[in-house]
Structures are given as C-alpha cells and as structure tokens.
C-alpha cells in the first residue's frame, strides 16, 4: 500500500493542488496585484491593467482612513476578549464533561448544536435576544435583575463588543470543547495517579499535568479561534451592521466598496491584503509559540 501511495503520489494530490491553486492561490495572487491598481470591480479606471497601476496609493488611502484604523483596533480588541472567553468556556465544558458519568453524549450534542447555525441566522437570533430578552425581559427595571449594562447591548461600541463575544462564545465553545475533550482523553491516567501519590491537589494537577499535555489541543483551538475572530463577518452584519462604530475588519472591507461610486475595489483589496498579513503573522506567531510549549512524554 505504501509503495502504491509513493508511486501515485503526484497524481493523487493533483486534484487537491488544482483546487487550491484555482480557488485560493490564483484569486489571492490576482487580488494582491489588483491592490496596486485602480480596479473598479469590472474594469480598470484609466485603461488596462498595466495602465492602471497606482503604486502604494491604495495602501496609503487605506491607512489614512479613520474607519479602517478603528476597525483594526476594534477587531483586535474583540479577538483578544473572544479568544480568551471561548478557550476558558470550552476548556471548562470539557473538564466538566470529563467528571460526569451520565448524559455525556447529550451534553456534548447540546453544547455543539449552536455551531450548526449559520452566522447570519445566529446574528438575527441574538439581535432578538439582546433587544428583547435582555433589554425588556431579563435586565430591565421591571425584569428579573436590573442590569443597565446588559440592556441595549447593540447600541454602544463597547457593549456591542461584549455582545459579539457572548454570541460567538455560544457558537464556538461547543466545537472547541470537542477538541479539548479528545486532548484530555489522550492524557494517560497514570500521570494523574503519579501526581496524586506525590501529593498534588486538583489545581496543581491541572497546571503541571493537564495544561502541559494539552498544549497540542490548545495550539489548534487558539489557531482556530484567532483566525475565526479576525474573520468574523456574518454575525457582525446581522447583529449590529457596523452601527455605533462596530465594524470589524471584514465588514469594513465590504463597506469600502459601497462607500464610493464608482466602487473603489483597489482600496478594498489593499485593506484585504493588510488584513491577510495581520491574520497570517499573528496566527503563525501563535502556532510557533504554543508549539514550543508542547511537551513529549
């Protein structure tokens, strides 16, 4: 079998390579080239591709756009909070499910289910929850507890950031929990027994046994949550539509096209390239950092 794979290796990987090249590679290269031109979506302003090169003008325009800078800062803030929150909740769920004996499958399914919903549908559901359930029913002066911070959460830049975090934690925690569960299951029981004999309590065991041996799962979950948080779009559109200064970067790129007529796809493309570089650098840095923390046993 191994000989077979070796012999036919190139042919077997060809479909995947072709798909990657045509669906991801080529559009990416074309997009990067277009970010240096006056591309308007269906034509180049000023003539042909070569005649429409504008150098770094699109990048300069992108960085001198206050909204773009604000969306970068806002996205970073959201990502920081969301990554921490999702990881804490997902790991807590995984640890809790490791403790219980009955109904594990049911809980796993229930926690995983929100992940099946599309971003837009979820955004609209949570819009209703924040605007009606939180605002009128639960946290209003006549509600269960009066918590003003939790009312009108979509109408304030800071509150909306937490609203987005609450929604994405609800969506992603179940999925990330499954990765943590499989990581936890792969930790040999004897290591815990040995730690117990050495007199380690639950907290000590968590930090000296569980956490170091869970690093491969943490690498994956951190990577996924970082990338997903930076790329968040649908939920942003449905929940706040960018009102009250709540445009994340993906939505900012989308709106750049609509802000002017004829649409300036060149600037939007430059923003997309900057966006790609940021996500790529942070993700690569994170992966190499957490990889180094992984231990072998």
């Amino acid at each position: 079998m191994e000989r077979y794979y070796k012999k036919w290796f190139y042919l077997l990987v060809l479909p995947a390579v072709l798909l990657f090249v045509f669906v991801i590679g080529l559009p990416f290269v074309i997009g990067t080239i277009y970010s240096f031109t006056s591309w308007r979506g269906t034509y180049f302003a000023g003539g042909t591709l070569s005649e429409s090169f504008v150098g770094l003008e699109n990048y300069i325009q992108a960085f001198s756009d206050e909204q773009f800078i604000h969306s970068m800062i806002y996205t970073t803030a959201y990502t920081l909070v969301a990554v921490v929150a999702i990881n804490i909740v997902a790991l807590s769920f995984a640890l809790m499910l490791g403790r219980i004996k009955r109904g594990v499958g049911l809980y796993r399914t229930v926690f995983f289910l929100p992940n099946m919903l599309g971003g837009l549908a979820m955004g609209f559901i949570w819009q209703f929850i924040f605007q009606v359930v939180y605002t009128d029913l639960l946290f209003s002066p006549d509600g269960l507890f009066h918590v003003e911070f939790l009312r009108f959460m979509t109408q304030d830049t800071t509150k909306a950031l937490f609203a987005l975090v609450i929604m994405t934690v609800w969506q992603s925690a179940g999925y990330m929990m499954l990765i943590y569960i499989s990581g936890l299951n792969s930790i040999p029981g004897e290591l815990y027994e040995a730690a117990e004999i050495d007199g380690a309590g639950p907290i000590r065991k968590f930090f000296t046994v569980t956490l170091p041996l869970l690093m491969p799962s943490i690498t994956i979950v951190l990577f996924l949550t970082l990338a997903n948080s930076f790329k968040l779009l649908d939920q942003n559109i449905a929940l706040t539509n960018g009102d009250f200064n709540t445009r994340l970067m993906a939505l900012q790129i989308l709106r750049t096209i609509q802000d002017k007529t004829p649409p300036n796809y060149g600037v939007a493309q430059a923003q997309a390239v900057v966006f790609f570089v940021i996500v790529a650098v942070i993700s690569l840095f994170q992966v190499s950092l957490t990889r180094r923390k992984e231990v072998e046993y």
Binding site: R40, T42, A45, T261, P262
Partner: peptide, 29 residues
C-alpha cells in the same frame, strides 16, 4: 458586477438611477 465579469454578460441590465450611472458609464458599458 459578477454577471458582467462572466462569460455571458447581460445585454440588458437594470440600474438604480443616477447613483449607479458613473460606474457603468466609466466602464463603457
């Protein structure tokens, strides 16, 4: 815009007034 970039661009298309005119005028379409 996607349709215009496709192999069979429309011969008749609809525009929502003066706001959308500059784009299609500039593109010579």
């Amino acid at each position: 815009r996607t349709q215009m970039n496709s192999v069979n661009p429309p011969a008749i298309f609809s525009l929502q007034g003066l706001k959308e005119l500059p784009e299609w005028k500039e593109s010579g379409r």
